[in-house]
Computed example of a mutant assay.
Amino acid sequence: MYQTEERGGEHTGTYRLYLSNAQGKFLSPFHDIPLYAGETQDVFNMVVEVPRWTNAKMEIATKEPLNPIKQDVKKGKMRFVANVFPHKGYIWNYGALPQTWEDPAHTDESTGCGGDNDPIDVCEIGTKVCSRGEVIQVKVLGALALIDEGETDWKIIAINIEDPEANNFNDIDDVRRLKPGYLEASVDWFKRYKVPDGKPENKFAFNSEFKDKDFAIRVIKSTHAFWNALVTKKHSTGEINCTNTTVSSSPFLCSETDAKAIVEAVPVFAVGDSVPVNVDKWWYGKKN
């Protein structure tokens, strides 16, 4: 249904991954892919940014036209997450729900903090290791509220509807029962993944407890409403780039020709930099 096109050099500041539809029309994974994968509104589209067990911190570029996937940069270097023992890279397929936005100006009534100015994050727990830029359909199971430097950063727990065990997972308690230790490992990962960079452990709302499916879906619906206000210019966009090719009610709608020109302005894909040798090392640290 969706295709990807890589541009620039991998693991360099020029790397960008653009998405297009089946007809080859470029689009924004932030604004143009529908949140809901069907009319029932119980299955959601997810854009995979980071395949499970990989380390490159890839993310939707919210401040760039068409919002391609790029690698995060920290202190002038391409960012890779450390393998915090016993974890190897990201322990889920990690990505975002399109057409959602965590509004930094909105104080969440349950966490007391504003949003992190990004699409809402998803941890997909199925069997398949997905590909960067892949769009999959997931059902939501629950949510974890990470408080990242004073901002609410929701982590939605979901499973690919095509997973062979998907029918067995319908709420967060099913994850606890059928994948014992996985939720605890997820909290541990988010708590400590920045520690190797010299930062303190992350904090969580609700005493690190996961909220259930119904709560998670309410959060998703509220962030969808915030996104709608953003893309229709009923809310200040700030640094967010709302260029899109399908949202007819949006003043940021651009033509197919303009979208193609945006992509072609980026250098063609080429062999980039090699992955640093220390990426495969394990980082050992005491749990607090």
Rank of each mutant, 00 (worst) to 15 (best):
N228Q: 14
P251L: 11
G9C: 09
F80N: 02
L27N: 03
V48I: 15
V47D: 05
L253S: 00
V129P: 03
F30R: 00
E184N: 12
A158Y: 05
L27A: 10
A22S: 11
V279R: 09
P276T: 07
S131N: 13
L97M: 13
M58N: 07
K57D: 11
E239F: 13
P251G: 09
H106L: 12
M1Q: 09
G238T: 08
R79W: 10
K260L: 14
S274D: 15
C113Q: 10
D116P: 08
E10F: 14
D108W: 12
W227Y: 07
K260R: 14
P267V: 10
K139Q: 13
K70W: 08
F252G: 03
D32G: 01
C242P: 05
E102M: 05
V73P: 02
M1C: 08
Y193P: 03
M78I: 14
N67W: 06
S186N: 08
N55F: 09
W282F: 15
A216Q: 02
E151P: 04
N117T: 08
N83M: 10
I217Y: 09
E151S: 14
D163W: 05
A225C: 10
L144D: 06
F190R: 00
L35A: 06
H87M: 15
V84C: 15
G38W: 04
R16A: 14
D197H: 04
K203C: 06
Y284F: 15
N45E: 02
W227P: 05
T4Q: 10
E239W: 07
P51Q: 10
N93F: 10
P251E: 11
C113H: 13
Y90W: 09
T12F: 11
D121P: 10
I156N: 04
A82P: 00
C254L: 04
K155I: 03
S208H: 06
C130I: 02
E256T: 04
K221E: 15
V219H: 04
P251V: 06
I159G: 00
T232F: 15
G115K: 02
T14S: 15
T152I: 08
V275C: 10
C242Y: 04
D174C: 12
V279F: 13
W101L: 05
D103Q: 06
K287I: 11
Q23H: 10
K191V: 04
F26Q: 01
N55T: 08
Q99D: 00
D173G: 00
I240Y: 02
K213Y: 04
G133D: 03
